[in-house]
Design a protein around this nucleic acid. Structure first.
Lengths: 112, 112
DNA sequence: CCGCCATAGGTAGACACGCTACATGTAGCC
DNA sequence: GGCTACATGTAGCGTGTCTACCTATGGCGG
């Protein structure tokens, strides 16, 4: 998968995996991988800054915990985050509809 | 529509509107608008450089013509461009499948 | 006992590429 | 004479993702 195809859609993905549950960063990466059927393998250097950005934006809140001697920062959605997710979902539908309208157009029937 | 959502998909769009016909830059912009139901309104500063980039890459060739006193540069796909379009189309399917798998996942049944 | 891997979190800097703003010119209409 | 639609193009900015790197623990194999 081309690297920067994600551009502008990453926020939606992160919000989506946190919808209805809380996860820490590492688990988020694994969840994205699992849910995408292995197609998405985001590097930590992409995910962690993005999570912090979303937290700064008030869409997520985080909490530290220690599990098995390892520190985890667990994220969950704020109400604003839930709302943002809904917006992102409909934006995604619009987006794919637009692109599909063009890509799906086909070679044109050569005016048969 | 968010500005940079297009990232990495623009090439596919340009190749797709040129599939089976030749158009000049301005007409390409209008075609994209029409085929997307008005959702896509790309500025010339986005499209023209992209077309030149694709031409440099050997996916398009262009030809000057004059119509009604106005100069037009008309683009069409090369064989490599046609092949690239096929690749882009399947990449797009993979991409949407991956994202849909995550976005569509829903809030999770609360472990039903 | 030492090294390596998986787990876990993080930063700095580079880079790609679409966007904004600007520049140029013709044709047609009022 | 000026405005709008048509038509092409460049320069420079912004920004978000990636690469590469750093830190640290626990458990495993040698």
């Amino acid at each position: 998968m081309k690297a920067d195809a994600l551009r502008g859609h990453l926020d939606a993905l992160l919000l989506a995996v946190l919808d209805g549950r809380q996860l820490h960063g590492y688990a988020i990466i694994e969840a994205l991988q699992a849910r995408s059927g292995g197609a998405l393998d985001l590097p930590t250097g992409t995910v962690y800054p993005a999570l912090r950005r979303l937290e700064r934006g008030g869409l997520l809140v985080s909490e530290w915990s220690t599990v098995g001697g390892r520190k985890r920062r667990t994220y969950r959605l704020t109400p604003a985050g839930t709302r943002a997710l809904a917006t992102e979902r409909s934006a995604w539908r619009e987006f794919t509809a637009a692109i599909d309208g063009i890509l799906g157009g086909g070679p044109w029937p050569t005016q048969a």
